[in-house]
Amino acid sequence: MGKRARRGAEGGCNGALSRRQALIAWGFCLPFVLVFGVFMLVPLLSSMGMSFTDITSRDLRTPFNVNIVGFDNYVTLLTDPRFHKALLTTAIFVIVGLPITIAIAMAFAVALNKGLKHLNAFFRAVFYAPVVASVVAVSVVWRYILQDDGLLNSLLAVFGIDGPDWLHDTRFALPALMIMTIWRNMGTLMIIFLAGLQAIPTELKEAAAVDGAGKWRTFTSITLPLMKPTILLGAVLISVAYLQFFEESFVMTQGGPLDSTLSAAYYVYQQFGFGRYGIASAASWVLFIIIAVVSVLQFRILGSDE
């Protein structure tokens, strides 16, 4: 480095100078490149490599026992009914959960977009709180709400309804977790939608009012179409999060009962726990491809005329 710098100074020619500048630029980038390379790229690529081998936890001491098996892991996966079930559960989770989350977040955003300033700031904070709360901490509360003699069922009992044992019933465990996930993710979307709503000029709404549109008509004909880019952003963010649905299953049901809350990400985690690294890697790459495809599809569909 010192030698190069001296040469640049002595020669004074442009080539050396720009080379030196490039070197300095790389120097500034180095910390990021190193961190990204070591902690992101290496695991990413090695997991891809692992997905084509039969590596298990036993092979860690005897790395030479690892064999390349081609697409065997992927074949195993695609014929495993549990993986199918995990994918189906994840799909249901996204297809049902995403629209509900968007609708609720939009409703809150619209409600908080007008009205009293101080009260709104308070409610914004309240609705955003679940996003920042630790899932482990809130799981305690939710378990208390959802257990057989919990808050929810006591409430239902008041109306004479005999509520199910939410977390231990195969029919209700997934909806229960869905509600909890929606509650946790709604705040993020709400803040994004609020920002989007505030970017819509009041003049347009006034023009619509003068044109004879009522509140609902103005919302569907003016506000929603203008919110499309914002909704697209929110939909992609949330569907990526939901496709990786894991934490709620992990802390509340461990994928049960009878795999009814077994998500794709939880399946990966389980395979990893069983020491089947090859299968786990393959499953996570399948999930990765699904996420990529879903995101591209959303941009295609929602962003069609831009």
Binding site: P201, E203, L204, E206, A207, A208, A209, V210, D211, G212, A213, G214, I222, P225, L226, K228
Partner: peptide
């Protein structure tokens, strides 16, 4: 009365055309 019930039309300074 609400604007929508007044049967008036308005031209705004910045036109307020619906961009979509």
């Amino acid at each position: 009365m609400q604007p929508k019930d007044r049967d008036i039309a308005m031209v705004f300074q910045n036109y307020a055309l619906y961009p979509h």
